[in-house]
Design a protein around this nucleic acid. Sequence first.
DNA 1: AACAGAATCAACCGCTGGAGG
DNA 2: TCCTCCAGCGGTTGATTCTGT
Length: 295
Amino acid sequence: MMDGKRRMLHDDELRDIKKGPWKVEEDQVLINHVKKYGPRDWSSIRSRGLLRRTGKSCRLRWVNKLRPDLKTGVKFSAEEERTVIDLQAQFGNKWAKIATYLPGRTDNDVKNFWSSRQKRLARILHTSTAPSSSTKSHKTTKHLQTPPFDFIPSLKAPKLSLSREEEFAAKSQLCSSIETVPFGEVVYPSPINAVPVDQQPCISFPQFPILQPDYPLLLEGQDFFGRLGAPSFLDDDFGHFALGTAQVPIAPSFQASGTLESHDTVDIDSLIDDDFPPIDLFDQIEQLPSPSHWS
DNA sequence: AACAGAATCAACCGCTGGAGG
DNA sequence: TCCTCCAGCGGTTGATTCTGT
């Protein structure tokens, strides 16, 4: 419990703290501090009266904005996107860790990129599942029948901080649940079916391979859902994630459409950036059988 | 041109863990 | 051992910019 005097001092300090956008002069002070002392002793900046910012705020400003090696104003390249998606699958939302693999990018950059992507994809899926609520005539949604995506909002990411045992248990549960997915039969290309359980696509999700151009279609389908934000896409629980991974319906859908064969390939870069996810995806989903035909 | 909605960005907040007294 | 301080991290929010209608 603080005594009154110290409490008052604390409140005064709080009142004296400046927040909000940084001015050029403040930046200059901060840069000068770093030049003199290095990127440390952030709280001394305020205690010595140089700035009315908290040490925390100073550090953040330096790390996210003033550091000389930052790629400010440069959009994420396709390669960087791939890296983030891959590493997010490996490490989960460890943005700082992921950022260390991306020169010139901060954890904030990565985090913003990811959340922006999640929002976009969630919106795309939501739009595709609620055609009546949209007044916009979108070429991919206007004909949409009742899509089998009602389960998606209940998806949850695997907790990537799981212990190896927990992860294995979750993976096992995930694989065993595949058979109950309400999309009917699961069709995997035989090479995938041939691999051991713990290497089948439904569970290798967080570790999908470094992508190459002309990657096989069905692995692409798998990767597509990785791109949807695996493993935290729409952020729910791992058990339902089996449904959410939904490489399950996609592969049969592509096959059923008769437009693509399992050995077909797609240009991976076409799935990234502005056109990702491929808008045609929903045309494929559209062709899925209605729930009354599932059994 | 005006507006709405989406996307992006910057900054804050709360929490955690480590170091040091 | 406990307490305090600090650095760092992830989540969230609000402002600004962009884009489509």
